[in-house]
Amino acid sequence: MTFAGLPYNTLVVAVGVAAVGFAAGVVGSLCVLRKRSLVGDAAAHATLVGVAGAFLATGRRDLATLLVGALAAAVAGLAALLLVRRFTRTRDDAATAIVIGVSFGLGIALVSGLPAWGYADSAGLEQFLLGHTAALTAADAVLLTGVACVATIVVSLLFKEATLVAFDAAFAAATGWPVLVIDAVIVGLVAVMVVAGLPAVGAVLVTALVVIPPVAARAWTDRMGTMLLLAGMMGLVAAVVGVVVSAAWPGLATGPLVVLAAAAIFGISFVAAPERGWIARRLRSVTRNA
């Protein structure tokens, strides 16, 4: 069974990854607007430990098990970030870099050690590094779609609260909103989307999925709601392009292709968007000077 020349499995996987791309764009918009663009990167690099840990603990390699482990590790990485911030005078940027470097190192050490420690069937875990959609099944795709839908619904429910906190956290706190809780939900959603993006984009690059589409979408609109939708659409397109191209080019990991597709969208947006695009700005400054 094929559709538009694509095998059935590729098609189903493309739908699942597209849903993840959409939700990641939506969730990432909140994160970028809250000025926490690279929080997702810390969570992403920590996921590898969870993937290896989940395999070690259960001996299973199905996607759900590994992603649950990845999510636990992502949350642990973010908790480590909070601990560093609370108990040391290390600044936030260095703290983020520490979590990224050390957690990824631990993940690499675990993934490399597994075969040597007698886990012969651990091959495939390293596909979570750069993404590899060819190995996904239709059931995996359904799982990813479900996660993406839930994340999108949570954002639409909390749209008002998240906007308020992202725009003016002090005012939000002064008017009685639990800023920490709302922040935790935003960051938690980012962690979930980073984990959901792992199979397609991989730990090293998945942060692009929550950063690039929002930044590109911002160029086209001045309204929050529109920006979220647009970022979602851009994430979706990037994900689909990445999956389809990698299906046609088997030697290549999916992640870089998704990122390059997103980067192309960003480039077009940055240059050509009306009002905020580079050309529009240049034209404005030229007409002003004339």
Partner: peptide
């Protein structure tokens, strides 16, 4: 205290 470039 706020980012006036915010999309609102």
């Amino acid at each position: 205290t706020v980012d006036w470039d915010f999309p609102v």
